[in-house]
Computed example of a mutant assay.
Amino acid sequence: MELDKIEILLENYFRGDTSVAEEIELKNYFSSLNVAQHLEQYKPIFGYFSLTKEQKIPLKSIKQNRMWLSIAASIVVLLGITTFTYVNYFNASQDQNLGTYHNPEIAFRETQRALSMLSSQVNVGIGSVQYIQEYNNSKNLIFK
């Protein structure tokens, strides 16, 4: 009778339908000496669970690891802030050449050249608008 009950519990265990009390009963059965021959293959599973439960993890090493991890994280944050500050403030002060001219004649020539280039690009755009205007006029003549 007990063997049938263990087999049913084992099937429920592998389906995930057992309660904690039933799992303790299975663990107690498989840790005893009188395990049925055809169920011997499941003995290491429940033996492993009881073995790992007895192992202790030293908490001191975890606390030390957290301490070193927090120190390392602080150093990384400080390096990041230092790098950001250096790149944005110290390099920005070195790039003060804003394209200004001290000689007014050179500034005038460069301004004329820039406005000429801008004018040529605007003229290309106006030519495209004239094509659209001609299209609209033709469309209005046809659909009136």
Rank of each mutant, 00 (worst) to 15 (best):
Q37G: 00
R66S: 09
Y48E: 13
E25I: 08
A73H: 04
N12K: 11
N88F: 10
S31N: 15
I71N: 00
A92S: 14
F84Q: 04
T18D: 00
S61M: 15
G99Y: 07
S74W: 01
Y48A: 14
V87N: 07
G47W: 04
W68P: 00
N88W: 00
G99H: 02
Y48T: 14
K53E: 11
Y86G: 03
S19K: 06
V20I: 14
R66G: 05
Y86K: 06
P44A: 05
N12V: 02
D95F: 11
K60W: 07
N103M: 03
E54G: 03
D17S: 09
V87G: 02
K60N: 13
P58N: 15
I71R: 01
M67C: 12
H38E: 09
V76G: 02
M67D: 13
H38R: 08
A21I: 14
P58V: 09
T100V: 11
I71D: 00
K60M: 08
S31R: 13
K43F: 00
N91W: 11
S32Y: 04
L33I: 10
I81H: 02
Y48Q: 13
K60V: 06
N12W: 00
G99L: 07
F14Q: 03
A36Q: 03
G16A: 06
V77F: 06
K43Y: 03
D95A: 15
L98C: 05
I45V: 14
H102C: 09
Y86L: 11
T83F: 07
Y48M: 15
S31A: 12
T100H: 08
Y48G: 13
S70I: 13
F14L: 04
L78Y: 02
N34W: 01
A21G: 04
T82C: 11
A92K: 13
E23R: 07
N12M: 12
V35W: 00
G80Y: 00
P44I: 08
V77S: 01
I57Q: 10
M67F: 15
V35Y: 00
I71W: 01
A73L: 14
Q64E: 14
E54W: 01
E40P: 08
V87Y: 06
F14A: 03
A92Q: 14
F49C: 01
H102N: 15
F46H: 02
A72N: 10
S70D: 14
G99Q: 05
V20T: 07
E54T: 06
Q41R: 13
S93Y: 07
Y29I: 10
L98K: 11
L26S: 02
F46K: 01
A73F: 08
E25S: 08
W68L: 13
K63F: 13
Q41H: 05
S74E: 04
F14K: 11
T100N: 12
V20L: 07
N28Q: 09
S19M: 06
R66C: 11
Q64N: 15
S74H: 02
N91E: 15
A72F: 12
N12R: 14
T85E: 06
E23P: 04
